[in-house]
Nucleic acid binder design. Structure first.
Lengths: 193, 193, 193, 193
DNA sequence: CATGAATGAGAGTTCATTCAT
DNA sequence: GATGAATGAACTCTCATTCAT
């Protein structure tokens, strides 16, 4: 596949991403993507065989870019509480953004492709999230910022809450106030007054 | 619509429920329900116009029956901690059951019919859950069983966690151990040792 | 068939008539008539087998009643010109009435059941109309009111014009002015100034 | 849409025309046209969305071709009476042809889409016909061929008669003799003996 | 590589007609 | 007689997928 093809594939993925953001996963047809990309029907099939494959590659692209952001954040030299706060703020931003989220598409896809496999993307993200938060809490305990008897339980709690708020945001909406209150509740459970 | 029709309608709803449990919402066609019910194509349309209507009536049926169960449980004369534990055990059972859950169908439906309206079923259930738990925590504080500075925050936390575990259960699976650990974490945050 | 059944049959025909007036022939289903009559599906089939049969009986009923009207008019003791004028006025009234006409239903039916048979209802009506007008013209000539070299041609002309105006009224509308002008044109061709 | 597609669209319209000639408008389904064209179900939808659209485009095609014929006839250098006779002969031919007429389809369509709008196709054709005939009559008067006190009335009369004969031809048949007699009646009303 | 016409499977929906009650 | 639930045929319309150019 030449350089030109790589560009076109990337173009399709970026355009398809918008379609998935708009319509979720199950509602998206190959026709939708063809039309959004303004390419020919046959043309799309040169690069992808199904909406499933397209979504998976969109998510892969997403993951690659997320790593970049992650790397940037990790270069910060803040305290554990600062980093955790920053992390939660980032999550809050994602939760509340209405117009750029693949959340629905991802859930719809994984409802159909549920797997308890270690490689399940959502599981990997969840586990990674727990590990990161756990480390932060442990660092916070070490530095005297936090008090916590069960760092892993607390980390899991935070991840479950975020997951819960994410789904609520997509099904009946969630206000900034609700998010703030819950994040405050979580931080107050950790911070030594 | 005579008595006979009422029976048949109920039969269709119960059969359709199984279909929604198996296939979620978006994957279910009128044809699927016709075949599951072993009735004629036209016959189904005598009772329902769309899979949407069928799902909504299934959920209504569900809600009516749930109210019954709820009423039964409320007659218990246990302490607040007992009742909360019972409630969480009930939730755990639901979370872990693999074969009888409308969860996926419900989420798929509400992804498409998201509304921040007070009447949104999921929102009502969430708010009701928070209220119940909050009352229990306050009762527990009053009786000296619990310690909690922010009962509403704690109640919301529990509901978000349950929601989070519910979606995780449907996308990458969740083990009994994980649920137990998290419920233990939650109870330990409340109970006065 | 008892007296009661006769009444019910008449009720169905009268109700069905309204349906045909509203929707023509091809658009009317047995269901439409059942609903308009507020009887059961099976009930309708006790009396009629098809919309075709119903329309035909409606037309028969119509014809019987029309004869009554015709008889009344024929008792007039006017001059030929008066009677012809009266006849044309009657036709004009029918042409312009928008809300009570079976015209469309009748044409739609006869498009599908065209027959050059002497018994074809439309043909009988046309021929009868020509004969009546021809007699009137001849009477007018005899009495010195009219001048006409070809009474049959003139009579046919009038009937074709009425037919033409009838169809135009149902397809692109026709104004009272247009009808009056044409009827005036016709009468002036006959009357001796 | 490429050249090839234009050809195919034309092919579909020509084939559909035959179907409308055979079955009228209301009896024609997309399936009928698909089968007549020997193309796939989906294939037809690439070009047309409904039988209505197809009929309208058939009529448009018809109108375009009719204009061509009209242009040819107008180059004649005959007298007014000759041209009028020619015109009526043309109408007669159309009236009597049994196997190639869209008349029924057109009426059926306009029964359902009656509009008194200036753009109503039938109205435009009627008005155009009246105007043409009126001009011919006036020309005939000027040249001393015709005598007529109300050229517009006479022109309308001719158009109504033609319309009337057209509908009669489709509902109970009309013989060549009947047409000839009526056309003769009309011409004799105009020509100076 | 790219196009877009073409196919055909399959879902939705309506209604004439029957039949047990 | 009368009811209305039930059936199944027929139609509409949409897409995934292929293939000649």
């Amino acid at each position: 596949m030449g350089e030109k093809s790589v560009q076109k594939k990337k173009y399709i993925l970026e355009t398809a991403r918008k379609v998935f953001v708009d319509k979720g996963y199950k509602n998206v047809t190959m026709k939708d993507i063809v039309e959004a990309c303004e390419i020919s029907r046959g043309g799309l099939y040169l690069y992808f065989d199904s909406t499933e494959q397209i979504l998976l590659e969109v998510l892969q692209m997403e993951a690659d870019e997320a790593d970049d952001v992650f790397t940037k954040n990790i270069t910060q030299e803040d305290t554990a509480a600062d980093i955790l706060t920053l992390f939660l703020k980032e999550q809050k931003k994602e939760l509340l953004q209405k117009k750029n989220s693949l959340t629905v598409a991802v859930y719809e896809y994984f409802f159909e492709h549920k797997s308890t496999d270690k490689n399940n993307m959502l599981r990997k993200q969840f586990d990674a999230g727990v590990r990161v938060i756990e480390k932060l809490i442990e660092a916070g305990i070490a530095s005297g910022e936090f008090y916590c008897e069960d760092p892993k339980g607390a980390a899991s709690n935070i991840m479950y809450v975020l997951e819960g708020m994410k789904i609520d945001a997509q099904t009946f909406g969630i206000t900034e106030k609700m998010v703030d209150e819950q994040l405050l509740y979580i931080m107050q459970g950790l911070i030594i007054e």
